[in-house]
């Protein structure tokens, strides 16, 4: 949380995240070609995890034994198409690890074709935990199935999926 002068009329600065390194990196990323974007490093094998974890090259760790870059970075998590009780624990481990290492996590839900209540509850708890830690969780481009499931469970608004630009990319 950004701190202000004691006599300032502005307490929490909602734009503070823009001065973190990831903002400038993201701005530059918009100008690079597709081939460079495609070269992002996947740190998790799809055979081992329920999700694909993509980290920008600039943020990739030098030591593979430390799967994440230092704090203050931003990570992107691409959800697998099918998320059920069999893989929720793996997703949980990854999300908790990411939450402790990154200031912001963008979760790409565009490819989700099936998600159960256990996984939705996990995402909800993640979001609530992140709020308490002054961190940011964003669910991007949710698929129609993701939106439908979160609405059925009554947590679409809490997950803010209704505010995301869904299904465009």
């Amino acid at each position: 949380m950004a701190e202000q002068d004691e006599d300032s009329l502005i307490g929490y600065d909602p734009l503070a995240w823009m001065h973190r390194s990831d903002f400038n990196q993201d701005s530059r990323k918009a100008e690079v070609g597709e081939s460079e974007v495609d070269s992002s490093t996947e740190l998790a094998s799809s055979t081992e995890t329920a999700s694909n974890l993509e980290i920008d090259l600039d943020q990739a760790p030098a030591d593979a034994s430390e799967p994440y870059a230092s704090q203050g970075e931003r990570a992107v998590l691409v959800l697998e198409p099918v998320l059920n009780i069999q893989n929720v624990s793996v997703l949980h481990q990854h999300l908790m690890q990411m939450l402790s290492n990154f200031e912001a996590i963008d979760i790409d839900a565009s490819g989700v074709t099936m998600i159960d209540t256990a996984n939705l509850q996990l995402l909800l708890i993640l979001k609530q935990t992140a709020i308490g830690l002054q961190k940011s969780i964003s669910i991007d481009f949710p698929s129609d199935k993701f939106i439908e499931a979160s609405e059925l469970l009554g947590i679409a608004e809490m997950l803010e999926v209704d505010q995301a630009a869904s299904g465009f990319f």
């Binding site: 909602p14 734009l15 995240w17 823009m18 903002f23 993201d26 701005s27 990323k29 918009a30 100008e31 690079v32 070609g33 597709e34 974007v37 963008d106 964003s138 991007d140 505010q163 630009a165 465009f168 990319f169």
Partner: peptide
Amino acid sequence: LSHLVGTIKKFESALKRP
């Protein structure tokens, strides 16, 4: 504005143009 900038950044990233 914070939310709006986040949305714009996502479009810039997806459309690959600032």
